[in-house]
Amino acid sequence: MIAVTNISKRYGAVQALSDVRFSVDRGELFGLIGPDGAGKTSLLRILATLLLPDAGEATIDGLNTVADYRAVRRRIGYMPGRFSLYRDLTVEENLRFFASIFGTTVRENEAFIRPIFAPLEPFRRRRAGALSGGMKQKLALSCALIHRPDALLLDEPTTGVDALSRKEFWEMLHELKQHGIAILVSTPYMDEASRCDRVALIRRGQTGQIDTPQQVVAQFPHRLFAVRTDNAYRLACDLPSWPTLHAAYPFGACFHVIDRRPHIDISAELTAFLHQRGHSAVECLPATPTMEDCFMEWMKRDESE
């Protein structure tokens, strides 16, 4: 449904995208992950026909985003990173406005957007600017879906949204997949990345590995250990002096530690090392890598290149 072929884009001296290619199928939820400034927003804007690529081409349902931009716009729903509905219009007015732009009516599509719009029902008359973060995001998604697009482009849709609304939002995306919509979403949340069917890692405008989250995690090249002691700050100060350290970073309530020597269980050694440095209640256990560990490893490789 979405096909990106060798897309490049340059802003002055900055190469925002180079030779990017991938495709998203009907009913597929595809995640774009990468650090700030990796080119994710540029890519989504090209697909949304708002930006022209310098080279390469992108198609939605076989239609070219440059030559057939009008037809493309009728087939896509786009949710930009910044809240971009009319703050001084009510919830209902925003919905009616977007429906009329696409030559349809709210009534015609009410059943389709109901699962998403239902929590907003009591606020129909409230101005969009006065909604809470989670509600704004549900309204933005409703407006992006009001013309029943074939492809949905979402640029960090859950930034600034609380954990519960995030969970609900992703449940909705999984429901939309059932209607055969192709969904392309960028996110800084690695737990969300792991809920995608496939993900592409982007850095400095180039796509790296494209795979299922399960495969990405399965290919994590190191043994991982979860370490905690009674004092997290001192642990952060002491871990860098572990002689064969590859990486150590906070991970929830503990630190994740990777040794340079592969296949070695460092639990006993590291525990002794930390005891020696005056830590107590030391716990060092093997841990299962997650998408977040893969991202950290991948950024580390980027730095050392």
Binding site: P35, E156, T159, P250, M296
Partner: peptide, 22 residues
């Protein structure tokens, strides 16, 4: 919400600064 929309690596660098300040 100092780290809204920030990637996992940058968020950790940011928290190192928070720990230092504390």
């Amino acid at each position: 919400e100092p780290t809204g929309g920030v990637d996992p690596l940058t968020r950790r660098q940011f928290w190192t600064l928070i720990y230092e300040a504390a």
